[in-house]
Design a protein around this nucleic acid. Sequence first.
DNA 1: CTGTTAGCGCGTTCAG
DNA 2: CTGAACGCGCTAACAG
Lengths: 341, 341
Amino acid sequence: MNKPATIKDIASYCGLSVATVSRVMNDKGPIKADTAERVRQAVDALGYAPSMAARALKTASSSVIGVILPSLTNPVFAETASGIQQRAREQGLTPIILSSDYDLSLERSAVATLLGYQVEGVLLTVNDAASSDALARLDKEGVPYCLMHNVPRQQVCGYIGVDNYRAAAEVAVYLADLGHRCIGMVSGDFQRTDRARDRHAGFLAGLRYRNLELAQLVQVDPVNAVGLTGEIHRVYEQAGSAPTAWFCSNDLLALATIAKLQLLGIRVPEDVSIVGFDGIQAGTLRQPNLASIRTPNAEIGAAAVDQLLTNKRGIPGQTGRTLGHQLLMDGTVAPPPDHLS
Amino acid sequence: MNKPATIKDIASYCGLSVATVSRVMNDKGPIKADTAERVRQAVDALGYAPSMAARALKTASSSVIGVILPSLTNPVFAETASGIQQRAREQGLTPIILSSDYDLSLERSAVATLLGYQVEGVLLTVNDAASSDALARLDKEGVPYCLMHNVPRQQVCGYIGVDNYRAAAEVAVYLADLGHRCIGMVSGDFQRTDRARDRHAGFLAGLRYRNLELAQLVQVDPVNAVGLTGEIHRVYEQAGSAPTAWFCSNDLLALATIAKLQLLGIRVPEDVSIVGFDGIQAGTLRQPNLASIRTPNAEIGAAAVDQLLTNKRGIPGQTGRTLGHQLLMDGTVAPPPDHLS
DNA sequence: CTGTTAGCGCGTTCAG
DNA sequence: CTGAACGCGCTAACAG
């Protein structure tokens, strides 16, 4: 690994001073066209890349932003990362993307890591915005940040997300108006993330609005849907009123639920309707399409970059906003079977 | 954004010299237990995080590794990124993950960006290892790298992947031995990536080994599967021998193909068998499971980190290796319908 | 065991 | 329009 060319190398190669080279690299101050050209040639010839480390040290600004996501493989966060990536590139920022694996201590250490890189700001999704050490640390250090997907009650530096509560309520009303009277919910452990809680609460509220109760609540490990098979089995084995519709707190759970139902010989949506949440691609790569709430995940990422930049410039005004969601109520959703409606 | 504490702040806070603080931070040299404790307290109190920029400048090593992937949302690369992330954390390295969006010029500029951060090395998947400017640049700068998913013919710094050719050939043989005689392939544009080419070539070879020809080749835009509907339609409208089995060069294409076939009233696998490639999660979240080749994507990422470290230490020996794949030949694969076998 | 100091590569004065 | 010199925060070498 031969050591990289420095600004000095360029300077001596051109017979100029480092100051002049620096000016050319940054388009600062008046430079003779001829000089600039010579420098560019040298840069090309020697493969010079300015050291971001030295630059950061000198200017006290790194053009790096930190990103902390619960998972890189979950399509929701992958799309978010992709949106961040793209917008950051446009803005001349380099993201350092870290995964917390839904682990609070990794959330904390990720913040610590990013602090060392003197990031301009941090974009992050935390398990629970109301009680996050990570956020507390960022507040304490005065590093601007923007939450993604979390829509906190308390005052925070910035946030971008969707209205999980409202969206879930809309699903409940939709299913009720379709004639469903016995409705269940499959949720990831909603003690763990504020999103799961909001979706649960919103769904209950929507049902109540139509004078319905939640007939069944199945809670499973959200990563591997551990226990789902058993629970589904249990519900449909006991005689009596099993739900004709299920709302699942995310699409991955919804797809898993459909697969389990099919194994029991239950047809979707003829016998049972299923609605997910997130609108991931896998849901559209099947027949019938998975009914879901589509959330603008990439836009959330991009908007978070913008929000961060706004905060940094100290522009007063809103600290965040919710983006619109979209009900995709076809495919795996249908009225209940005749005799049950 | 209050400015971060520096080593000097800690030093004066404790009434010590910066050197001592530095020693404590890096566990270097003998330190009185009491002194160390005082430093730790100060670090905690002031929220001090050593500046990676200054450290990199001084030590000429950044503990940052660069990562360039064609996409962050494709599950294959998302899993790879996740594997990298995890192993890098264990090794005290911080990855900077960039997406090239399958774009050659972004591939190049991503390398340029990473060079500025004095990365210890680069892990990357390129469109075509045999003709990559990005690789050429890395070679020229003497930056260690490790290809992921690309398994190049020429000598490179390092690589980790699966044997696409062999895996595809195994699928061909499997389908042939199941009784299929009329077999098609759905491929992403295989002029674009070496993986698609290898899979195509391997599949042809496997068929030839069983004295078969490829009955149909459908090429589509690999990102959105543009044109797939039309092509499938065309094949099954013309009377005569339509394939009883399709090999798709990745799972996303396979799932899209199944959906299209179902829209034409063709059942999978009763009428037509479908095999994908990659073994992504979406394939297992359906009934029947998608038949596929499972590739160890996260392990490829993790192994690439290891390979990079090996290369850096200049340990002689192999420059890379292929990891094993796994045939998952159930679910959407079955013998051809009786009258056609 | 601890302190002093040079210098990593760069951008930014201030002179010329 | 260009050059010389300083210092950002840190580690390593040397001194005590």
